[in-house]
Design a protein around this nucleic acid. Structure first.
Lengths: 130, 130, 130, 130
DNA sequence: GTGGTCTAGACCACA
DNA sequence: GTGGTCTAGACCACT
């Protein structure tokens, strides 16, 4: 699951995998994450690295870290909130990615189709279409 | 246009801006880019940094670097080529980004709309709809 | 081992020596290379130059660069891969070299003998003769 | 025939093409080369560049340059001569190339076959097998 | 301690 | 005038 030789930092990969797990529904809002030491053992990496990933997720407002109960997915995640939207600059990042795909000659319809397929595979909330 | 305090390297930002300019049609295939030293003074950065960005674009097959006329956008860019598409774990990168947006509570339809809007704003190739 | 006065760039010479060491078996797949700074002091050159050589080898898919353990020879190197063979205008390069040798009056049989001798001295892969 | 965007210098490409033409027999020993200005016009390049290529060939002992008759292929080319062999370091260059091919996973027999095919396609001298 | 980035200045090759 | 190379030193990110 992790590529230790990748140029993308390990803590970033952990963060990405957690975010994807939440989006897919594998990690429900309010659910607990493994302890840093446990995940470090599972992934055979230094626990400081896991710590850094968790801290990043906390600063992004995606998880909460309690002294006693460990890290849990914030219950209000996946709900529209200005707090979560802020600091995302997601339009710019998406624009950069789309520009690269366009320049590489990947057909627009293929990209749109992939985006729709991925998004529709996410469980979604009951209040999505109010 | 550049954020010198960003965590994303300056040379990467330059590379991204060039790619976007090509996708938007602002930089047509065959068009020339400023010389490394010129762009360096324009952006108030070191010319080695521009050099690295150009070298990255060259290795990606997006521009050509000619000893006399400087850097030009490859005329055959935006033509689907296996080599260019190959370097593409783009589905994974897109999936990670989409998961983050979903977790941040951004409505799926808003994302799809933005994607379509950005893509449709790109001029596109003549052979896009054969 | 290095010729600082040569017209071929130092970083290219380093890259060539590493490739030769791999072919000879002196550097086995999976083996580690010296750290950039270490090799720099060993060769009495700037570490940036070594850095560039390693980066070139990485982009060629010959080594992997790991943040903690440094550079290692890719374990799957020497296994025929289309991507590695692709970057190969090798027939043209070989043709140019052979033409030069012919013009210089080096007997064809001597050239063939040298080629065979060098190749046969390389350990080779287990799957070479299936 | 020339790739103006290549990373290999134009004057070097000209030199390589001339050497190949001699090896193939298209340019016989003693034959004359086009004038620098003529070749510059033909190739649509600066005549100084052709000049540099010719000078390189002269310094390599492959052609002679006469004030009146222009550049001619040395009549004694293709014959074994210590003068021509010197300064070639061809074993080292061949070794580097072969090592790269081996590392890229190209079968040894394929390389040997290509070398033999190219060499045998060169006309060869009557005194080759004395 | 590892590699990565940026800056800076000098020199060279190429066209 | 163009890009390419090498050197040098400082700072940062990652593990």
């Amino acid at each position: 699951m992790l590529d230790l030789d990748s140029e993308v930092p390990i803590y970033q990969q952990i963060r990405d995998r957690v975010v994807e797990a939440i989006a897919e529904g594998a990690l429900a809002p309010g659910a607990g994450l493994p302890s840093t030491r446990q995940m470090a053992v599972d992934l055979a990496i230094n626990f400081h690295t896991v710590n850094k990933a968790y801290d990043l997720l906390r600063r992004e407002g995606i998880i909460r870290i309690n002294r006693k109960s460990g890290a849990v997915v914030r219950p209000d995640v996946k709900r529209p909130s200005d707090e979560l939207r802020a600091g995302a600059d997601w339009e710019a990042r998406m624009r950069t990615l789309l520009a690269e795909l366009d320049v590489r000659g990947i057909p627009k319809e293929e990209v749109k189709g992939h985006v729709a397929a991925v998004l529709d595979a996410f469980p979604g909330r009951e209040d999505e279409h109010p």
